[in-house]
Design a protein around this nucleic acid. Structure first.
Lengths: 144, 144
DNA sequence: ATTTGTGCAAATCGTTTGCATCTGA
DNA sequence: TCAGATGCAAACGATTTGCACAAAT
């Protein structure tokens, strides 16, 4: 991780109102240095260990939520009992392949939603999620 | 629960390849006798107890999964660590109000999705979920 | 009689929390 | 200095599982 990258990440955290601690920098590095990505807490905890940095799992959870609250991540609930965090916080769309637990963006933002009704009184739309659930061609898509 | 209704539910279960047991009939009664609805296992367990029927929580979970596998229910993952089951199994759309954990159908099927790309090689689209996340007008929608 | 379903309690797994200790500004 | 952050282990809550017993065909 170059000094330039550290500076970039430090700024990013400071702008979000978060102190640039060793742990947050390590996690931010994994999340924000390359292309957009989708991670779970468990995955990220594994990756940060691989880098030789020690960050406790509880801190990974805390940090993911702090990043989400700061608008740096979007939280996605796709399967019960596993949360994904998406580094792309804009309104975009996803493919999900249940069999493999794999999640990825739908390439190109060709999707448009027509005829979205007025939200109920006193509420506004925070986000529209379009999730396209895929199955492998030869299967029914049902399982226990 | 009238005899007619019992017959209807018994047939429904038999057609799904499930033996019409006391527990399944009680749960099916709650799920399929009125309008379409969204329930969690916990909710349904509470409701069935209120009717004076004893069905263990594990059986509620088992039964919900059996119903889902039989195509009688659709499973929806909306928030991490709470699964909703929808008695309407057709491709339709939902509002979700996170603050209250409330879920409901978007009235009228006015929504159309334009420009859905070809799914990746070897896969087909099983289902498209559109989830419109609402927040109360005076809030940011972010919380810990 | 044989297969299938159910109840119970214990186990699992992701996630959160309480609290003592440490760190960044 | 001292508010804020972290680590650890224990707590939690939803869900699943193993197995003995009961019910359906």
């Amino acid at each position: 991780m170059s000094d330039l990258n550290v500076d970039f990440l430090e700024n990013k955290l400071r702008e979000a109102g978060l102190r640039p601690t060793r742990q947050r920098l390590a996690l931010a590095h994994l999340l924000f240095s390359g292309d957009d990505r989708h991670v779970t807490a468990e995955q990220l905890h594994f990756e940060v260990s691989e880098l030789g940095e020690h960050v406790s799992l509880a801190t990974v959870y805390n940090t993911l939520h702090q990043f989400r609250n700061a608008g740096l991540l979007r939280e996605l609930a796709i399967e019960s009992s596993k949360t994904y965090f998406d580094t792309n916080t804009s309104n975009h769309n996803h493919y999900f392949l249940e069999a493999d637990g794999k999640l990825w963006d739908i390439p190109s933002d060709s999707i448009a939603i027509e005829g979205l009704p007025q939200p109920p009184e006193g509420m506004r739309i925070a986000h529209v999620d379009v999730m396209v659930r895929l199955v492998k061609d030869d299967k029914s898509g049902q399982s226990d």
